[in-house]
């Protein structure tokens, strides 16, 4: 689904990604772990098209398209989704209006009819159920005054509503209590399918108990230095990151 080759990216002149390689196929769940500052969030933001980052080298092929050539909104319309680490507040626009606009923009791009009010409401009902979400969050302004947990849950709600192909979760587990973590994971698991892929960025193994990855990668200093199965996450949890670093494993592509 997505193939990242020798990706280099800088922010304000500092190189954060230093030749990252990664390939993710449909139906797979990948987890990226790594110490603070290793470039995990940068990778997610670069793939989503954040303007603050400059790609200086490398390429990303997404569904046979040059991803880096696409505007951020077109990446989203092509089915790439980022659940933000820090969801942004937008006062004055209700969550419902925002979602309706987004859903219909994406449908339009795919050449599909816009949803009727009834269809949209039915979709909302179905998805809020999965996340056990309070309907009042829909009439409130986007993320405005939401608690940390509500914001994260709202991200996953958007994931389910927009139904992308490739979902990136940027530390979605941070700030969640165990009940919320279970609900959010349940939401993500209900999204998983043969034709979908998920990239989970996290610090902690805990989330991976609920969203079980097929592959785990360790990102350090802008490169993937080790890849493995889900047991790698457990190993990291036990030993920390230091034991890998000396290995200086060659850039690894899955």
């Amino acid at each position: 689904m997505i193939k990242i080759k020798d990706l280099h990216a800088t922010i304000e002149g500092n190189e954060i990604l230093k030749g990252l390689n990664l390939e993710i196929n449909a139906g797979e769940v990948h987890a990226i772990m790594g110490p603070n500052g290793s470039g995990k969030s940068t990778l997610a933001n670069v793939l989503a098209g954040h303007e603050g980052y400059e790609v200086t080298k490398g390429e990303v092929i997404y569904e046979d398209k040059d991803l880096l050539d696409l505007a951020p909104e077109d990446r989203a319309r092509e089915g790439l989704f980022l659940a933000f680490q820090y969801p942004i507040e937008i006062p004055g626009i209700s969550n419902a209006t925002f979602l309706k606009t987004a859903v219909n923009e994406i449908r339009k791009y795919r050449g599909e009819e816009e949803l009727t009010a009834k269809q949209f409401l039915d979709l909302i009902k179905e998805k809020t159920k999965i996340l056990d979400m309070d309907n009042s969050l829909l009439s409130r302004s986007v993320n405005t005054g939401f608690s940390g947990g509500e914001k994260k849950r709202n991200e996953i709600f958007q994931l389910l509503m927009l139904d992308p192909k490739f979902a990136m979760l940027d530390e979605t587990d941070s700030g969640l209590d165990i009940d919320a973590l279970k609900l959010v994971s349940h939401g993500v698991n209900s999204f998983k399918a043969k034709d979908k892929a998920v990239l989970v960025v996290t610090h902690y193994q805990r989330l991976l108990d609920y969203i079980v990855p097929d592959f785990v990668h360790v990102l350090s200093n802008g490169k993937i230095i080790k890849s493995g199965g889900k047991e790698l996450a457990l190993e990291l949890e036990e030993k920390g990151y230091d034991w890998i670093k000396p290995e200086k494993a060659a850039a690894h592509s899955a």
Partner: peptide
């Protein structure tokens, strides 16, 4: 903010 715009962009909104 640019962050607000990027957030909406990421949801498919120009």
């Amino acid at each position: 903010g640019e962050d607000q715009i990027f957030y909406l962009n990421q949801r498919g909104i120009s």
